[in-house]
Design a protein around this nucleic acid. Structure first.
Lengths: 200, 200
DNA sequence: TATTTAAGCAACATTGTGTCAATTAAGAGT
DNA sequence: ACTCTTAATTGACACAATGTTGCTTAAATA
């Protein structure tokens, strides 16, 4: 096992790589929905039929294009954790920082993915909406932003995303807790944070 | 101004209502992407051309169908806030609860919207991914779930959503802070919560 | 080199889209 | 009740994207 046994034809790898690159390129120019299979294969300089030899839909292509990047991040985190097994992972910023660095590194990709998204960006509209309300309340309650303190813009985004995520989880799991319970847990996490969960 | 002056033709209102109902009905059965204009107008018992008299795309129809519900929630929160102007909005769960109650009330709608979303649900996949990592770390750091404590399942969703939202904001605003700064703020909010921002 | 198989090519039926002109019928205002 | 306005219906149209097929060419592997 000196070399990983070459089982996939080079041409296959080459085609897939070209298709992936072409799609990401196009996504920087026009919205994902407006991209056709023909657009992709044209950009990749290959026949349209070739696309179907590898993928069924453009969504499939996109998803597989992303997987490698995710795996890369996962591996990096894995290494970090296993190389310092005693370091409490939540105690410092290291883990979070790996994530943000990863995003920064692939900013071009994530930008096109996250910029305008499904249903004409309905998810962003929902989060934006929550963030706007949260921002108003933050200002009302915490007052104007203190010097050197975390900007309200950030904390309201934080709150909005957290709430959104809990709502999605709640809905998709058929509401295993009451609205009152969810609100209570949500509120506690927002105001006190996770360290509140530490055994006293 | 005794009555709101009727300016829009009843037929228009009726058609739009039917189209909206038809779309939401269909979204409970098949995925949004697979729904055609013809499917919608068939379900609404009207001609396909009629659709184009009101909307340009099905996304437009969906968005307008949602607006009324959003406004409803916004109004409810507004009322709550202005009726108790002195009550610190973040101090209790009341505001959060309004949100979760609203979602519960329109669960059927939100379920279809949030269930499978753009790019074949790529956003959910990203959040799921972060949540999985967060969950592992939560268990490793906070130990097994304490009795009566917030379930790790919830707190990891909370963390995932918050991070996702910050990442999106960061990317869409062309990264106005460094990865290190973002990680630091993110981590502090996660562990200490928003009350940490209160003036001492 | 011989064999395998990916990619190219051209054509095809199918389906959804968006628009249009002419017609019918329902609502609004008097 | 009558008239004017305009929404909705209908059938048709050109256009574009899809997914598949049979055959050919050429590249990679062993």
């Amino acid at each position: 096992m000196q070399k990983p046994k070459r089982k996939v034809d080079r041409r296959v790898l080459r085609s897939r790589k070209q298709l992936s690159a072409a799609l990401l390129e196009l996504m920087g120019e026009v919205s994902f929905e407006d991209i056709t299979i023909k657009d992709i294969t044209d950009r990749a300089d290959m026949n349209r039929a070739t696309f179907y030899l590898h993928y069924g839909t453009k969504e499939e292509l996109l998803y597989q294009s992303l997987e490698s990047r995710f795996d890369q991040l996962a591996q990096r985190i894995e290494e970090d954790i296993s190389s310092n097994p005693d370091k409490p992972v939540w105690i410092d910023d290291c883990y979070d920082q790996l994530v943000f660095e990863h995003v920064a590194e692939h900013a071009d990709l994530y930008k096109v993915i996250l910029d305008s998204n499904g249903f004409g960006g309905i998810i962003h509209q929902i989060i934006d909406y929550i963030a706007a309300v949260a921002h108003r309340n933050t200002v009302a309650f915490y007052g104007p932003q203190a010097d050197g303190e975390i900007p309200h813009e950030i904390s309201s985004r934080f709150v909005a995303g957290a709430m959104f995520s809990l709502i999605v989880w709640w809905i998709r799991n058929d509401m295993p807790y009451s609205a009152q319970e969810m609100a209570s847990m949500c509120h506690r996490l927002i105001s006190q944070g996770c360290d509140d969960l530490l055994p006293k």
